[in-house]
Design a protein around this nucleic acid. Sequence first.
DNA 1: CGCAACGTTTAGATGGTTGTAAACGGTCGA
DNA 2: TCGACCGTTTACAACCATCTAAACGTTGCG
Lengths: 179, 179
Amino acid sequence: MGELDGARDLLIDALGRQSAFWGVGKVTGQLYAVLYLSDRPLSLGELAESLGVTKGNVSVAMRSLEALGMVRRSLPAGDRRVFFEAEPDVWLIARRVLERRSKPEFDESFRLVDEGAALAAAGPASPARDFAVARLAALQGFYAELDAIVAAVLRLDPRRLARLLRLTAGRRAGGRAAR
Amino acid sequence: MGELDGARDLLIDALGRQSAFWGVGKVTGQLYAVLYLSDRPLSLGELAESLGVTKGNVSVAMRSLEALGMVRRSLPAGDRRVFFEAEPDVWLIARRVLERRSKPEFDESFRLVDEGAALAAAGPASPARDFAVARLAALQGFYAELDAIVAAVLRLDPRRLARLLRLTAGRRAGGRAAR
DNA sequence: CGCAACGTTTAGATGGTTGTAAACGGTCGA
DNA sequence: TCGACCGTTTACAACCATCTAAACGTTGCG
């Protein structure tokens, strides 16, 4: 079991870094790592002990994980404890996070840029205004393209998408890689 | 000029939100917004005044913006002031940020997962080990696919990429009109 | 009943980030 | 060479997120 524990510690480190980097808190990712490698659901107390943190800390972190759809809660009959198990489909998780967390923030900026572009276009003509209008139009184009990419990532089968992009990248953008 | 100022304030808000969301600090994005809409380079003092923050604050923020390749510094002959202008290619910026900031963090996690997978595979066979090995293999697949997507975004022309993905998405799911 | 186990909530400490204010150093013009 | 102007750096204050510890409410069991 030594190697398994070592592997688990490495994953705890890896996912803890990731979750901290994406602004979701360190223990959040660490808890997911523990559940991801566990072949049975774990109770809140077990999770707390496995990371050496308090139950209160785990309690709030699990709420975030549930909100992101990263874990499921199960309540066995005849047991007061609540058990958690990891959602194993990491692509599903990535899509959900992108959709529920990044997308709204992104859309709000998009809306503000649209509003600003309309406002600037309504102003009296001047060199400064023309410059700003052109810049805002370029920014709108960027947002639109980014939106298309995000939409594709959200809707396409990731395996197919990765292969498609690998092919296109290999051909240096220009070949027809359809099949 | 009223409409222009309004539009500028909206962009300051939009990009300030974005930069704060991506963990780069609020004023950083705000400063870029000011420069992005300015038809002439601005000095550090002008930037500080336009946002109502101190010059010291602007000084450090501009350092970050330079490190990300989001602004350029120009030193006109016969003027002690330093002037800044925005890099206008937002796709170029997005790619650079993805490359210099997200990619290393992502690669480090990838490496740790690889290491963990190798370690787990080396351990004595058991149901728990087989489970963990399978899970880690799935995670490695996820990272590999994600890597392919990121590589494509980094290398392809964004306009072509957006169109390609729009087409593919349209063929697979219902057509999605651009905004 | 009363106790024990469990998860949740709250108050407080702690650390990291972000901003200000002011001292500092360098450079140009008079 | 003096003085004014700029940008940079430093020290410090304010804030926000995160964690712990402990009180709390609930539930099952003897």
